[in-house]
C-alpha cells in the first residue's frame, strides 16, 4: 500500500513539475522572441542612421563632391586632388560609392529569419491547442511572406528565370525549409499528434543560424563600412579646414575623429551582443520546448499553455511585419 501511495505522490509531483516546466519554457520562448525583435529593430534603425550620417559627412568633406545616389571617386586618389575630381582619371579607376539608404536586401535576410522564428513558435502553440483560426491565419501570412522572400532571394542573386541552382544556397534553403515546415503544418489540419510529429522532425537551427549570420554580416560589413566612411570624411575635412579653425574648433574636430576611430570591431561586436545573446538563448529554449512537447500531456494542459503564448506570438508576428512592411 505504501509503495502504491509513494508511486502516486511521485507521479503527481512529476506531472506538476512537468506542467510548470512546459509553461516556463513556452513563456521564455515568447519573451525571448519579443526581445529579439525589439533588439533587431533598434539595431537596424541604428545602422541605417549611422550610414546616413557617414554619407552626409563624406559628401560634405570635399567641395568637389555633391549629393546624389552615388559618389564617383578615384580608386587611387591622393591628396591634394579633390575627392570627386575625375579629370584625367581613366574609367576603370573610377569607383562608385553607394550613397543610397542601406539596401533592404541585407536587412531582408534578418527579417525573414525573425518572421520565421515567430511563425515557428506560432506553430508550436498550435501543437498545444486544436486548430485556432487566428494562428492558422498567422501561418498563412507567414507562408505568403516567405514565398515572396524566397523568390526575392532568387531574383536578387541575379540568376536567370527557372534556374534552380540558387535555391541550393544556405540562405534560400533556410527560407524554403521553413515554408516546407509551415505547409506541412497546414496539411496536418493542425491536429495535435500530426503537428507534434512534424515539429519533432523539423529543426529550427538552420534558420536561427541564418539569422546569426545575417546579423554578423550586417555588423562586420555595412555597419563597419559606415564607420570607415565617417572616419575618412572627418580626416579629409580636417585636413582641408584645420588652417582656418581656431583651437576650440580643432579640438572639437579631433574629438569627433577620435570617437570615429574608437568604433573598432570590438565596439561593433558589443552593439550586436544583446541580439546574439537573445538568439543563442532562443535556440536553447526552443530546443527544450520541442523536447517538452514530445511528451504526453492532457488537453487542458495544452490549452492553458497555448493561451499563455498565443497573444504574445501573434503580437511578435505583427511587430515583425511592422519592421519591414516591404516583404
Amino acid at each position: 500500500m505504501r509503495i502504491v501511495a509513494t508511486a502516486l505522490v511521485g507521479l503527481l509531483l512529476s506531472s506538476c513539475a512537468a506542467d510548470v516546466l512546459r509553461l516556463e519554457y513556452a513563456g521564455q520562448v515568447s519573451t525571448q522572441a519579443g526581445a529579439l525583435v525589439q533588439s533587431a529593430k533598434g539595431y537596424v534603425a541604428d545602422v541605417k542612421a549611422r550610414r546616413r550620417e557617414a554619407n552626409i559627412a563624406l559628401v560634405a568633406s570635399d567641395p568637389s563632391c555633391s549629393w546624389g545616389d552615388v559618389l564617383v571617386i578615384d580608386r587611387r586618389w591622393r591628396p591634394p586632388a579633390g575627392l570627386c575630381d575625375l579629370a584625367g582619371v581613366p574609367p576603370e579607376r573610377q569607383e562608385r560609392i553607394d550613397l543610397r539608404p542601406l539596401s533592404q536586401d541585407a536587412l531582408k535576410t534578418i527579417t525573414v529569419a525573425i518572421a520565421g522564428v515567430a511563425a515557428y513558435q506560432a506553430a508550436l502553440a498550435d501543437v498545444l491547442e486544436d486548430k485556432p483560426p487566428d494562428a492558422k491565419e498567422a501561418i498563412n501570412s507567414a507562408i505568403g511572406s516567405l514565398s515572396t522572400a524566397s523568390s526575392d532571394i532568387n531574383r536578387i542573386a541575379g540568376e536567370k528565370l527557372f534556374d534552380l541552382g540558387v535555391l541550393t544556397s544556405d540562405r534560400a534553403k533556410a527560407v524554403v525549409d521553413l515554408i516546407g515546415t509551415l505547409v506541412a503544418l497546414q496539411q496536418t489540419s493542425l491536429k495535435v499528434n500530426a503537428v507534434r510529429a512534424v515539429v519533432a522532425e523539423k529543426d529550427s537551427k538552420p534558420l536561427l543560424s541564418a539569422l546569426d549570420d545575417g546579423v554578423t554580416k550586417l555588423a562586420a560589413l555595412q555597419d563597419a563600412n559606415s564607420a570607415s566612411r565617417l572616419l575618412f570624411a572627418l580626416d579629409l575635412a580636417y585636413g582641408r579646414e584645420r588652417a582656418n579653425a581656431d583651437f576650440v574648433g580643432r579640438r572639437e574636430w579631433i574629438r569627433q575623429i577620435a570617437a570615429a576611430a574608437d568604433d573598432s570591431p570590438g565596439a561593433r561586436e558589443a552593439r550586436i551582443a544583446a541580439l546574439r545573446s537573445a538568439l543563442t538563448q532562443l535556440a536553447a529554449i526552443d530546443m527544450k520546448l520541442r523536447q517538452a512537447l514530445a511528451g504526453e500531456f492532457s488537453k487542458a494542459d495544452r490549452q492553458r499553455i497555448a493561451r499563455e503564448n498565443r497573444a504574445q506570438i501573434l503580437g511578435i508576428l505583427s511587430q515583425v511585419a511592422a519592421i519591414f512592411p516591404a516583404i
Binding site: E95, D98, N225, S228, R229, F232
Partner: peptide, 10 residues
C-alpha cells in the same frame, strides 16, 4: 583611410 573605405565598399 581612403583605401580602407574603398576596400569596404568593394
Amino acid at each position: 583611410l581612403h583605401r580602407a573605405m574603398i576596400a569596404g565598399s568593394l
